[in-house]
Design a protein around this nucleic acid. Structure first.
Length: 245
DNA sequence: CTCACGATCAGCT
DNA sequence: GCTGATCGTGAGG
C-alpha cells in the first residue's frame, strides 16, 4: 500500500478523554521517519493511563517529575521512558488538561518498511533461540512489534524522541489517520498488562486491543470473563464487540 | 503451549 | 535503597 501521502492528525484528535483516545488510536498508523526511510505500523493495542490523583499505576499519579513532565504538557506529544535493561516505551499524551494523561502504545502490525523494522529489532540481540527465530522469520513476522519495547526497537524510538510533537508534519515520529477504505476495528477491553496487583487501578479495563490482529501482545480477554464491557468514564463503544476468532 | 525467574538500571523516595 | 507500564530464557505439560 502506498504511504506517500501520510500526514499527521491534528492536535484536536489528541484532546479527548484518555480512554477514548486509547480507543481512537486503534487502527491509526504510527509513522517513523529515519535515515530517509519511512516506517509505518498499524496500532493494534493501547493502554490508557489516567493521570495525577486518578490512576495509581500512572507515572504521573504523584505529580510531575523530571521523567514524566511531558505527560503534563500539551496533547499529542511523545512521552518516551526507559524501563528494564534500557528498553523504552512510547506513549502519546492525551487531553491537554495538564493532568498527566497518556496512552501507551503496546503493539503494531508492520505496515511498511518491515524489513527495516526487523533489522532494528534484531540489532543488539544476543545470540540465542530468540535471535535465531527472528532471523528465520525475517520481516514477515506479524509479532515483530508485539510489545511496547519491541515496538520501540522496531521504530528506533528512544529518549531522544521524548517530547516531540506528533502533530508536526516535519516530525520524525507522528500519527496518521487510518487509510480510507480500511475497515474500522472493533475494540476489546482488558485489564492493563504488568501492573502491580496491589494497585487500586489493577483491574481497570483500560487496555484496548484489536481482537482480529495477530500482532497483539498478551491475552485477548480478561481471564474468566467474556468480551469486556467499556471501562467507566467512557462513552458507549462505537463498534460491535469483536468476534472470538 | 504456559508458567516463573531474573537480568540490570533509571528514576524516585 | 527499592521498584518496576519488559523481555528472553528455561523447565514442564
Amino acid at each position: 500500500m502506498s504511504t506517500a501521502r501520510l500526514v499527521p492528525v491534528e492536535r484536536a484528535f489528541f484532546e479527548q478523554p484518555v480512554v477514548a483516545l486509547a480507543r481512537a488510536l486503534l487502527g491509526a498508523l504510527l509513522v517513523r521517519r529515519i535515515g530517509g526511510a519511512q516506517l509505518v505500523g498499524r496500532i493494534v493495542e493501547t493502554e490508557a493511563y489516567g493521570g495525577e490523583g486518578i490512576d495509581p499505576s500512572a507515572h504521573s499519579f504523584r505529580g510531575p517529575t523530571p521523567r514524566c513532565e511531558v505527560m503534563f504538557g500539551p496533547a499529542g506529544r511523545a512521552y518516551v521512558y526507559t524501563t528494564h535493561q534500557g528498553r523504552c516505551c512510547l506513549n502519546v499524551t492525551a487531553t491537554g488538561d495538564g493532568g498527566g494523561k497518556a496512552v501507551l502504545l503496546r503493539a503494531l502490525e508492520p505496515w511498511h518498511g518491515a524489513e527495516r523494522m526487523h533489522a532494528h529489532r534484531i540489532e543488539g540481540l544476543a545470540d540465542g533461540p530468540t535471535r535465531a527465530r527472528l532471523l528465520a522469520r525475517g520481516g514477515r513476522d506479524p509479532q515483530l512489534a508485539s510489545g511496547p519495547s519491541r515496538l520501540c526497537q522496531c521504530l528506533a524510538v528512544d529518549r531522544a524522541l521524548n517530547g516531540v510533537a506528533l502533530t508536526d508534519p516535519r516530525s520524525a515520529l507522528f500519527i496518521a489517520a487510518p487509510p480510507r477504505g480500511v475497515a474500522d476495528v472493533s475494540a476489546l477491553w482488558t485489564p492493563r498488562i504488568g501492573l502491580n496487583p496491589g494497585s487500586a487501578s489493577f483491574g481497570w479495563r483500560w487496555r484496548a486491543l484489536d481482537g482480529g490482529s495477530p500482532a497483539v501482545s498478551g491475552p485477548r480477554r480478561p481471564a474468566g470473563a467474556g468480551p469486556a464491557p467499556q471501562p467507566r468514564q467512557c462513552p458507549a463503544p462505537r463498534g460491535r464487540r469483536a468476534g472470538t476468532r
